[in-house]
Amino acid sequence: MSVPGSRQPSPLPPASLRGAVDLSAFKARATAAPPQHTARPAGAGTPGETPAATAPEAGPGAATVPVEVDEANFPELVQLSSQAPVVVALWAQYSPESQRVRDELGADVAAYGGRLAYATADIEAFPQLAQALGVQAVPTVIAFLKGQPIPLFQGAAAPAQTRQLFDELLRVAEANGVTGTVDGAPAPPPSEPPLPPLHQEAFDALERGDLGAADAALTKALAENPADHEAKAALAQVHLMVRTQGLGQEEADRAREAAAQSPDELDPQLVVADLDAAGGHVEDAFARLVGFIGRNFGPEREAARVRLLELFEVVGPTDPRVSSARQQLARALF
Protein backbone atom coordinates (compact mmCIF):
# COMPACT_ATOMS: atom_id res chain seq x y z
CA MET A 1 0.00 0.00 0.00
CA SER A 2 1.14 3.58 -0.51
CA VAL A 3 2.17 5.72 2.42
CA PRO A 4 -0.71 7.98 3.53
CA GLY A 5 -0.38 11.35 1.87
CA SER A 6 2.15 10.02 -0.63
CA ARG A 7 1.67 9.18 -4.26
CA GLN A 8 4.53 6.71 -4.44
CA PRO A 9 3.43 3.11 -4.80
CA SER A 10 5.19 0.44 -2.86
CA PRO A 11 5.95 -2.90 -4.52
CA LEU A 12 3.08 -5.38 -4.56
CA PRO A 13 4.37 -8.69 -3.18
CA PRO A 14 2.20 -11.39 -4.75
CA ALA A 15 2.32 -13.61 -1.67
CA SER A 16 0.78 -10.99 0.62
CA LEU A 17 -2.16 -10.17 -1.63
CA ARG A 18 -3.15 -7.08 0.33
CA GLY A 19 -4.34 -3.56 -0.38
CA ALA A 20 -6.17 -2.27 -3.42
CA VAL A 21 -5.22 -5.39 -5.31
CA ASP A 22 -6.41 -8.34 -3.26
CA LEU A 23 -6.15 -11.45 -5.38
CA SER A 24 -7.30 -13.69 -2.55
CA ALA A 25 -10.75 -12.14 -2.73
CA PHE A 26 -11.99 -14.67 -5.22
CA LYS A 27 -11.19 -17.40 -2.71
CA ALA A 28 -12.95 -15.80 0.23
CA ARG A 29 -16.27 -17.21 1.37
CA ALA A 30 -18.03 -14.59 3.49
CA THR A 31 -19.57 -15.98 6.63
CA ALA A 32 -21.41 -14.05 9.27
CA ALA A 33 -20.26 -14.64 12.81
CA PRO A 34 -23.14 -15.99 14.89
CA PRO A 35 -24.29 -13.97 17.89
CA GLN A 36 -22.91 -14.96 21.25
CA HIS A 37 -24.52 -15.06 24.67
CA THR A 38 -22.89 -15.72 28.00
CA ALA A 39 -25.01 -18.00 30.13
CA ARG A 40 -25.21 -17.09 33.81
CA PRO A 41 -23.25 -19.72 35.76
CA ALA A 42 -24.73 -21.26 38.83
CA GLY A 43 -23.80 -19.40 41.96
CA ALA A 44 -23.32 -16.12 40.09
CA GLY A 45 -26.88 -14.91 40.40
CA THR A 46 -28.48 -12.30 42.57
CA PRO A 47 -27.37 -11.77 46.19
CA GLY A 48 -28.98 -14.30 48.45
CA GLU A 49 -29.45 -16.85 45.70
CA THR A 50 -28.45 -20.33 46.78
CA PRO A 51 -25.27 -21.42 44.98
CA ALA A 52 -25.81 -24.57 42.96
CA ALA A 53 -23.45 -27.45 42.61
CA THR A 54 -21.17 -26.85 39.67
CA ALA A 55 -18.91 -28.99 37.59
CA PRO A 56 -15.24 -28.05 37.11
CA GLU A 57 -14.43 -25.02 34.99
CA ALA A 58 -14.74 -25.75 31.29
CA GLY A 59 -11.63 -26.59 29.33
CA PRO A 60 -10.54 -29.15 26.78
CA GLY A 61 -12.34 -32.28 27.82
CA ALA A 62 -13.50 -30.70 31.10
CA ALA A 63 -17.05 -30.30 32.32
CA THR A 64 -18.81 -27.06 31.55
CA VAL A 65 -20.25 -24.84 34.28
CA PRO A 66 -24.01 -25.42 34.34
CA VAL A 67 -26.81 -23.01 35.03
CA GLU A 68 -29.02 -24.17 37.89
CA VAL A 69 -32.55 -23.52 36.74
CA ASP A 70 -35.06 -21.91 39.05
CA GLU A 71 -38.33 -20.08 38.64
CA ALA A 72 -36.57 -16.74 38.26
CA ASN A 73 -34.11 -17.61 35.51
CA PHE A 74 -36.20 -20.14 33.59
CA PRO A 75 -37.52 -17.48 31.12
CA GLU A 76 -33.91 -16.52 30.38
CA LEU A 77 -33.06 -20.14 29.63
CA VAL A 78 -36.03 -20.42 27.26
CA GLN A 79 -34.89 -17.27 25.48
CA LEU A 80 -31.33 -18.62 25.23
CA SER A 81 -32.66 -21.69 23.42
CA SER A 82 -33.39 -19.48 20.42
CA GLN A 83 -29.64 -18.93 20.13
CA ALA A 84 -28.32 -22.39 20.97
CA PRO A 85 -29.93 -25.64 22.14
CA VAL A 86 -30.09 -25.88 25.93
CA VAL A 87 -29.59 -29.30 27.51
CA VAL A 88 -31.27 -29.61 30.92
CA ALA A 89 -30.48 -32.43 33.36
CA LEU A 90 -33.23 -32.89 35.93
CA TRP A 91 -31.96 -34.36 39.20
CA ALA A 92 -32.83 -34.72 42.90
CA GLN A 93 -30.94 -34.94 46.18
CA TYR A 94 -32.47 -38.33 46.92
CA SER A 95 -31.03 -39.83 43.72
CA PRO A 96 -27.23 -40.26 43.66
CA GLU A 97 -27.57 -41.65 40.14
CA SER A 98 -29.18 -38.41 38.96
CA GLN A 99 -26.38 -36.37 40.54
CA ARG A 100 -23.77 -38.51 38.80
CA VAL A 101 -25.48 -38.05 35.41
CA ARG A 102 -25.82 -34.33 36.10
CA ASP A 103 -22.09 -33.95 36.74
CA GLU A 104 -20.87 -36.23 33.94
CA LEU A 105 -23.10 -34.60 31.36
CA GLY A 106 -21.20 -31.34 31.79
CA ALA A 107 -18.12 -32.86 30.13
CA ASP A 108 -20.23 -34.21 27.27
CA VAL A 109 -21.74 -30.76 26.63
CA ALA A 110 -18.33 -29.04 26.91
CA ALA A 111 -17.00 -31.21 24.10
CA TYR A 112 -19.24 -29.29 21.70
CA GLY A 113 -17.34 -26.04 22.19
CA GLY A 114 -20.22 -23.80 23.19
CA ARG A 115 -22.68 -24.99 20.55
CA LEU A 116 -24.81 -26.39 23.39
CA ALA A 117 -25.81 -24.67 26.63
CA TYR A 118 -26.04 -26.74 29.79
CA ALA A 119 -28.43 -26.33 32.70
CA THR A 120 -29.46 -28.46 35.66
CA ALA A 121 -32.74 -28.48 37.56
CA ASP A 122 -33.40 -29.84 41.04
CA ILE A 123 -36.97 -31.10 40.79
CA GLU A 124 -37.42 -30.77 44.56
CA ALA A 125 -36.47 -27.09 44.46
CA PHE A 126 -38.36 -26.41 41.22
CA PRO A 127 -41.21 -28.95 41.14
CA GLN A 128 -43.25 -26.81 38.73
CA LEU A 129 -40.76 -27.55 35.95
CA ALA A 130 -40.95 -31.30 36.48
CA GLN A 131 -44.74 -31.15 36.50
CA ALA A 132 -44.89 -29.01 33.35
CA LEU A 133 -42.56 -31.40 31.51
CA GLY A 134 -44.26 -34.53 32.78
CA VAL A 135 -41.08 -35.81 34.42
CA GLN A 136 -41.80 -38.85 36.58
CA ALA A 137 -38.29 -40.03 37.44
CA VAL A 138 -34.73 -38.76 37.67
CA PRO A 139 -32.35 -38.51 36.02
CA THR A 140 -34.19 -37.17 33.00
CA VAL A 141 -32.48 -35.10 30.30
CA ILE A 142 -34.48 -32.72 28.14
CA ALA A 143 -33.38 -30.12 25.58
CA PHE A 144 -34.99 -26.80 24.81
CA LEU A 145 -34.87 -25.49 21.24
CA LYS A 146 -36.54 -22.20 20.34
CA GLY A 147 -38.51 -22.50 23.56
CA GLN A 148 -39.81 -26.00 22.83
CA PRO A 149 -38.91 -29.00 25.06
CA ILE A 150 -37.38 -32.05 23.35
CA PRO A 151 -37.10 -35.24 25.46
CA LEU A 152 -33.64 -36.82 25.12
CA PHE A 153 -33.38 -39.71 27.58
CA GLN A 154 -34.32 -40.94 31.04
CA GLY A 155 -31.92 -42.78 33.30
CA ALA A 156 -28.25 -43.21 32.53
CA ALA A 157 -27.05 -43.14 28.92
CA ALA A 158 -23.82 -44.43 27.46
CA PRO A 159 -21.42 -41.73 26.19
CA ALA A 160 -21.83 -42.91 22.61
CA GLN A 161 -25.61 -42.64 22.90
CA THR A 162 -25.31 -39.17 24.43
CA ARG A 163 -23.10 -37.95 21.58
CA GLN A 164 -25.49 -39.39 19.02
CA LEU A 165 -28.43 -37.58 20.64
CA PHE A 166 -26.52 -34.30 20.86
CA ASP A 167 -25.40 -34.57 17.22
CA GLU A 168 -28.99 -35.09 16.14
CA LEU A 169 -30.11 -32.18 18.33
CA LEU A 170 -27.62 -29.89 16.63
CA ARG A 171 -28.78 -31.03 13.19
CA VAL A 172 -32.36 -30.17 14.12
CA ALA A 173 -31.17 -26.82 15.53
CA GLU A 174 -29.29 -25.96 12.35
CA ALA A 175 -32.32 -26.86 10.25
CA ASN A 176 -34.28 -24.36 12.32
CA GLY A 177 -31.69 -21.59 12.03
CA VAL A 178 -30.31 -21.94 15.57
CA THR A 179 -26.52 -21.83 15.18
CA GLY A 180 -25.22 -19.56 17.96
CA THR A 181 -22.84 -20.29 20.81
CA VAL A 182 -22.82 -19.76 24.57
CA ASP A 183 -20.30 -19.05 27.32
CA GLY A 184 -18.23 -16.98 24.89
CA ALA A 185 -17.03 -20.09 23.06
CA PRO A 186 -16.33 -19.44 19.39
CA ALA A 187 -18.53 -21.15 16.89
CA PRO A 188 -16.70 -23.76 14.85
CA PRO A 189 -15.94 -22.32 11.42
CA PRO A 190 -18.26 -23.52 8.68
CA SER A 191 -16.66 -25.81 6.18
CA GLU A 192 -15.52 -23.88 3.13
CA PRO A 193 -16.55 -25.26 -0.23
CA PRO A 194 -13.53 -26.15 -2.37
CA LEU A 195 -12.48 -23.82 -5.15
CA PRO A 196 -12.80 -25.00 -8.74
CA PRO A 197 -9.54 -26.72 -9.69
CA LEU A 198 -8.21 -23.94 -11.93
CA HIS A 199 -9.08 -21.27 -9.35
CA GLN A 200 -7.21 -23.28 -6.72
CA GLU A 201 -4.27 -23.65 -9.09
CA ALA A 202 -4.19 -19.90 -9.60
CA PHE A 203 -4.44 -19.17 -5.90
CA ASP A 204 -1.62 -21.59 -5.10
CA ALA A 205 0.51 -19.96 -7.79
CA LEU A 206 -0.13 -16.53 -6.29
CA GLU A 207 0.77 -17.79 -2.83
CA ARG A 208 4.21 -18.78 -4.11
CA GLY A 209 4.58 -15.59 -6.19
CA ASP A 210 4.31 -17.25 -9.61
CA LEU A 211 2.29 -14.71 -11.57
CA GLY A 212 2.86 -16.52 -14.87
CA ALA A 213 1.31 -19.74 -13.59
CA ALA A 214 -1.60 -17.82 -12.09
CA ASP A 215 -2.17 -16.05 -15.41
CA ALA A 216 -2.14 -19.37 -17.27
CA ALA A 217 -4.60 -21.04 -14.88
CA LEU A 218 -7.05 -18.12 -14.96
CA THR A 219 -6.80 -17.78 -18.74
CA LYS A 220 -7.63 -21.47 -19.07
CA ALA A 221 -10.56 -21.08 -16.67
CA LEU A 222 -11.96 -18.26 -18.81
CA ALA A 223 -11.46 -20.25 -22.00
CA GLU A 224 -13.50 -23.08 -20.48
CA ASN A 225 -16.13 -20.74 -19.06
CA PRO A 226 -16.23 -17.20 -20.47
CA ALA A 227 -18.91 -16.30 -17.89
CA ASP A 228 -16.54 -17.01 -14.97
CA HIS A 229 -16.61 -13.53 -13.45
CA GLU A 230 -14.33 -14.41 -10.54
CA ALA A 231 -11.64 -15.66 -12.90
CA LYS A 232 -12.02 -12.55 -15.08
CA ALA A 233 -11.57 -10.22 -12.11
CA ALA A 234 -8.63 -12.19 -10.75
CA LEU A 235 -6.94 -12.23 -14.17
CA ALA A 236 -7.27 -8.44 -14.42
CA GLN A 237 -5.63 -8.17 -11.01
CA VAL A 238 -2.81 -10.48 -12.03
CA HIS A 239 -2.21 -8.39 -15.16
CA LEU A 240 -1.99 -5.25 -13.03
CA MET A 241 0.52 -6.91 -10.73
CA VAL A 242 2.61 -8.02 -13.71
CA ARG A 243 2.64 -4.50 -15.14
CA THR A 244 3.65 -2.86 -11.86
CA GLN A 245 5.93 -5.57 -10.51
CA GLY A 246 9.43 -4.30 -9.80
CA LEU A 247 8.68 -0.65 -10.47
CA GLY A 248 10.72 1.34 -8.01
CA GLN A 249 10.61 4.99 -7.00
CA GLU A 250 12.82 6.16 -9.88
CA GLU A 251 10.69 4.47 -12.53
CA ALA A 252 7.52 5.80 -10.92
CA ASP A 253 8.88 9.35 -10.81
CA ARG A 254 9.94 9.20 -14.45
CA ALA A 255 6.54 7.89 -15.50
CA ARG A 256 4.73 10.64 -13.62
CA GLU A 257 6.98 13.32 -15.08
CA ALA A 258 6.44 12.00 -18.61
CA ALA A 259 2.68 11.81 -18.07
CA ALA A 260 2.62 15.41 -16.83
CA GLN A 261 4.69 16.70 -19.74
CA SER A 262 2.83 14.71 -22.41
CA PRO A 263 -0.82 14.38 -21.31
CA ASP A 264 -1.84 13.03 -24.72
CA GLU A 265 0.88 10.40 -24.97
CA LEU A 266 -0.73 7.05 -24.24
CA ASP A 267 2.01 4.95 -22.63
CA PRO A 268 2.88 7.28 -19.72
CA GLN A 269 -0.81 7.69 -18.92
CA LEU A 270 -1.30 3.93 -18.81
CA VAL A 271 1.70 3.43 -16.54
CA VAL A 272 0.65 6.12 -14.09
CA ALA A 273 -2.94 4.89 -14.06
CA ASP A 274 -1.64 1.43 -13.17
CA LEU A 275 0.55 2.85 -10.42
CA ASP A 276 -2.36 4.82 -8.96
CA ALA A 277 -4.67 1.80 -9.04
CA ALA A 278 -2.04 -0.48 -7.50
CA GLY A 279 -1.35 2.11 -4.79
CA GLY A 280 -5.03 2.48 -3.91
CA HIS A 281 -5.66 5.80 -5.70
CA VAL A 282 -8.28 4.27 -7.98
CA GLU A 283 -10.27 7.47 -8.51
CA ASP A 284 -7.12 9.21 -9.79
CA ALA A 285 -6.44 6.28 -12.12
CA PHE A 286 -9.99 6.38 -13.49
CA ALA A 287 -9.97 10.16 -13.93
CA ARG A 288 -6.63 10.07 -15.79
CA LEU A 289 -7.86 7.53 -18.34
CA VAL A 290 -11.30 9.09 -18.75
CA GLY A 291 -9.61 12.44 -19.41
CA PHE A 292 -7.32 10.88 -22.01
CA ILE A 293 -10.27 9.20 -23.72
CA GLY A 294 -12.16 12.49 -23.85
CA ARG A 295 -9.25 14.26 -25.56
CA ASN A 296 -8.19 11.61 -28.05
CA PHE A 297 -9.50 9.42 -30.86
CA GLY A 298 -8.47 6.36 -32.82
CA PRO A 299 -6.50 3.32 -31.63
CA GLU A 300 -4.98 5.10 -28.63
CA ARG A 301 -8.40 6.06 -27.34
CA GLU A 302 -9.53 2.44 -27.65
CA ALA A 303 -6.41 1.18 -25.86
CA ALA A 304 -7.09 3.56 -22.97
CA ARG A 305 -10.74 2.45 -22.85
CA VAL A 306 -9.74 -1.23 -22.69
CA ARG A 307 -7.27 -0.52 -19.88
CA LEU A 308 -9.91 1.42 -17.97
CA LEU A 309 -12.38 -1.45 -18.23
CA GLU A 310 -9.71 -3.81 -16.95
CA LEU A 311 -9.13 -1.56 -13.95
CA PHE A 312 -12.88 -1.59 -13.34
CA GLU A 313 -12.57 -5.37 -13.00
CA VAL A 314 -9.69 -4.96 -10.54
CA VAL A 315 -11.68 -2.69 -8.25
CA GLY A 316 -14.97 -4.55 -8.64
CA PRO A 317 -18.11 -3.74 -10.63
CA THR A 318 -20.18 -2.99 -7.50
CA ASP A 319 -17.74 -0.40 -6.14
CA PRO A 320 -19.38 3.07 -6.23
CA ARG A 321 -16.17 4.54 -7.66
CA VAL A 322 -16.54 2.25 -10.65
CA SER A 323 -20.17 3.27 -11.13
CA SER A 324 -19.19 6.94 -11.09
CA ALA A 325 -16.31 6.39 -13.52
CA ARG A 326 -18.59 4.47 -15.90
CA GLN A 327 -20.87 7.49 -16.10
CA GLN A 328 -17.91 9.75 -16.79
CA LEU A 329 -16.66 7.35 -19.47
CA ALA A 330 -20.04 7.36 -21.19
CA ARG A 331 -19.99 11.17 -21.31
CA ALA A 332 -16.43 11.14 -22.67
CA LEU A 333 -17.33 8.68 -25.41
CA PHE A 334 -20.63 10.19 -26.49
Rank of each mutant, 00 (worst) to 15 (best):
L206D: 09
R102C: 09
G59W: 00
L333K: 04
E49W: 02
L77Y: 04
R301D: 08
F312G: 03
L308E: 06
H281W: 12
A277W: 05
G5L: 10
A52L: 03
P11R: 06
E230V: 04
G279A: 14
A55I: 00
P60F: 11
A39F: 02
L77Q: 10
Q164H: 12
D204I: 07
G291S: 14
G5C: 12
L90G: 09
P9V: 01
S323G: 09
A130S: 14
V141S: 08
R326L: 08
Q327G: 15
P186Y: 02
W91E: 08
R18L: 15
A63C: 06
R171L: 12
Q261Y: 01
L309N: 13
P268F: 07
Q261F: 07
G134M: 09
L129S: 05
E71H: 04
G5K: 06
G43Y: 08
D253F: 04
T140A: 15
T318N: 13
A33I: 01
G59Q: 03
Q200W: 00
F26C: 02
Q8A: 14
A52H: 10
S6H: 03
R256M: 13
V69D: 08
R29V: 15
G291R: 07
L206R: 05
S16Y: 05
V178P: 05
A332P: 06
P85W: 03
A92W: 02
A107C: 08
